[in-house]
């Protein structure tokens, strides 16, 4: 466990909590893509099946349970408690365009052709693209609430910190996981355009709106 990894995990947790806090305090999930949140819940559910088979560490176990719980609470908020505020008309990304290629790729490129490993691989590939419905929604509406941009910033920062973690692990442990690394690079690239807008607009006190 290195500093990049722990900061990455905390950044990920902070992003999830920011989103929940936004919905909780404003009693609204306007501007949030329910589809992206369903994909993230699917990512956690398929990746953390190993909770039933292996014990890695108490930290690992607790974090997995927290991520899972939070992602299901988020879905309950969007499609249950706060469904009247859900902006369905702008959340129009077609999930099959992500799911079908991701399922196909996980059958083609994986470490082992066994169910748990295929599900892990699926979750890694899916995570790389799971934010696309959210980014698509923002480009549909042309704007995002500032709190939503903070959520996206920490979610992107988490993956960027994981890249640093992998570089560190390669140099210190000779550990590398090419499936995770390639997907992580792709995932981080999706955030670059957003990072640029976040730094040039949101951090200067302006609302994120697209021209």
């Amino acid at each position: 466990m290195n500093v990049f990894r722990i900061l990455g995990d905390l950044s990920h947790l902070l992003a999830i909590l920011i989103l929940l806090a936004k919905m909780w305090r404003s009693k609204s999930c306007a501007g949030i893509s329910g589809k992206s949140q369903v994909l993230f819940a699917l990512v956690f559910s398929t990746r953390y099946l190993d909770l039933f088979f292996v014990f890695i560490s108490l930290y690992n176990l607790v974090m997995k349970v927290i991520y899972l719980l939070c992602s299901y609470i988020t879905i309950y908020m969007i499609y249950g408690k706060l469904r009247k505020t859900y902006d369905r008309e702008n959340d129009t990304f077609r999930l099959e365009f992500l799911l079908i290629p991701v399922i196909g790729l996980s059958f083609l490129e994986n470490y082992d052709f066994i169910p748990t490993e295929l599900l892990w691989t699926f979750s890694i590939y899916l995570e790389a693209v799971a934010i696309l419905p959210q980014l698509f929604m923002i480009s549909n509406t042309g704007e995002a609430e500032t709190i939503t941009t903070h959520y996206l910033f920490f979610l992107g920062l988490y993956r960027a910190l994981y890249l640093a973690n992998w570089i560190w692990r390669y140099h210190t442990e000779k550990f590398y996981d090419q499936i995770a690394i390639i997907s992580g690079v792709v995932q981080t690239i999706f955030y670059c355009d957003f990072f640029y807008l976040y730094i040039t607009k949101v951090l200067k006190g302006k609302k994120l709106s697209l021209p």
């Binding site: 990894r5 995990d9 990920h12 990746r47 190993d50 088979f53 292996v54 890695i56 560490s57 690992n60 974090m63 997995k64 991520y67 470490y111 082992d112 490993e117 892990w120 994981y162 973690n165 442990e173 000779k174 550990f175 590398y176 996981d177 995770a180």
Partner: peptide, 10 residues
């Protein structure tokens, strides 16, 4: 090459 199973990252 390090063992890829179990995956120790989140």
């Amino acid at each position: 090459y390090a063992l890829h199973i179990p995956h120790d990252e989140l």
